[in-house]
Amino acid sequence: MFPSKSDFLLRLTTCLLSWVSALILVLIVWFLFVESELVWREVGVLRFLTDDRWSPSGDFSSAQFGLFPMIVASLLLAVGSILLAAPIGVGAALFAAYYAPRGVRQIFPRIVELLGGIPSVVYGLWGLVVLVPLISAYHPPGTSLLAGIVVVAIMILPTVALLTLSTFQQLPTSLIHSAAALGIAPTGIVRSVILPASRSGIMTAVLLAVTRAVGETMAVLMVCGNVIQAPSSPFSPVRTLTANIALEMAYAMQSHRSALFATGLALMLVVTLLVLIAEQQRGKAGHV
């Protein structure tokens, strides 16, 4: 099959290296598991949900591993930001594909790409200096769940908009032209032809955006206030699971370190599940 020796060698090397690439994922899961094993064995899953407080240092009988307020905060943040970003993102994609003037259609994706390329610390900085004082003027302290939701929504907006736009661009033009030929009004075309035909693509976009929202760390860390509590209103400061890892890893030892890795493993599982569902959605063809 391989007439030349160099072909065989190249195939062998590339094959080995591509398994190295695939192995990284296995290594990540392995190390998260090994590092958190202590806590799984000594504490179990349930105490993460039922313990009253989060004070994970010291020996296992006196330490407290209550993650529940942080789980709630992470969940609310993800749900809130996607509720904000999904409609605007899909609207913006519709704008860029069908409504905007020709020149704007050309530069729109470039602008959205740039928006997506802004580092999360810069969003965090902007949130901290501009947005937080604005919220604080209305309802102190400003650093809050709401600030996090707004900043994360802005951060995931490009993901929703770009992926949805590429779904629109893959729709056969004949579909739209036939709908127009049937005399359906433009609004009707969007609502009864374009959107239903792109449903699985939009689902993929939204799910991938949710993975980003769940995993976002720096911006959230900078604008949410990092108080461990279940929020009583959008203006309450909260701490998410990701922010908790970033804040405490530097000095965490033994049971504490192990508990943080356990949190990381849990995040990883949630995100993996979302990605696999999203990829499955992508595989489905759109039907009108």
Partner: peptide, 29 residues
């Protein structure tokens, strides 16, 4: 297919998790 799927998942791994992994694997191990 297996390699492809694992890369899809790798692309979605949150950066803080990469931080934990990098600390445990590169920095410590």
């Amino acid at each position: 297919r297996l390699i492809d799927r694992s890369l899809d998942v790798l692309a979605g791994v949150p950066s803080i998790v990469f931080g934990l992994f990098g600390n445990a694997f590169f920095a410590v191990t």
